[in-house]
Design a protein around this nucleic acid. Structure first.
Lengths: 104, 104
DNA sequence: TTTTCCAATAAGCGAACGCTTATATGACGG
DNA sequence: CCGTCATATAAGCGTTCGCTTATTGGAAAA
């Protein structure tokens, strides 16, 4: 049931976008805010939710707060998907492609 | 953005459990209801939502409605997970295990 | 030290959600 | 037929959600 929180937290499109952006680069709340059409408190609230699920980590530096995504926290979701991938034989080839791409 | 609906629809634990049960076996609404502590309309509503996302298919037979899960509809979610799996090199081995298990 | 800046928190609001009970729609069985 | 059964739909209710504006805490800048 560890995937429950992940599904819930990632269900919101804005919050998922925040997570995805933080996978690309560490950045501050202000940096994040620049990319979205919502207020700073809204960004901070999403970060708090993501942090609660372990999807994001914080690094304080003076008055700045640097956030970065922690992909390891996706583990239960990855496991869930993998578990049901077996119901789906036609996509094994695609999975092999993923492996190939990662070997590069 | 095709994964947006999937995240939203699968975010509810009960609905996700319904989906998972229908991956194991086709069954009627009454069959499903027997496994959950919620009313029949609640079950039907979840099925409607799942059907809207293509996660579930219906087969009418007289007054019975047989439902079964369609794992193909997980495609966008699988793609999303695979995309971010590359941020996570430590789990490549696990992915290979998945492949191995599927080859059996 | 006072002002400015970054981020978090508080409070409240409207919309969406998941559930309930009540009712409707059909199909089967007596 | 008529009553029962399987499911869907309607309406309403309490809760959760994501957002807003207002405020606070604390660190840098002036």
């Amino acid at each position: 049931m560890a995937e429950a929180d992940l599904f819930r937290v990632l269900a919101d499109p804005t919050r998922r976008a925040v997570f995805e952006r933080l996978l690309q680069a560490e950045m501050t709340v202000s940096d994040l805010k620049a990319g979205f059409a919502i207020s700073q408190p809204a960004i901070s609230q999403h970060l708090g939710t993501l942090k609660g699920a372990g999807l994001v980590q914080e690094r304080r530096e003076g008055r700045f707060s640097y956030y970065r995504a922690d992909p390891d926290a996706l583990a239960p979701l990855v496991d869930w998907v993998d578990r049901y991938r077996s119901f789906w034989p036609e996509r094994i080839e695609r999975l092999k492609d993923v492996l190939k791409r990662m070997d590069q």
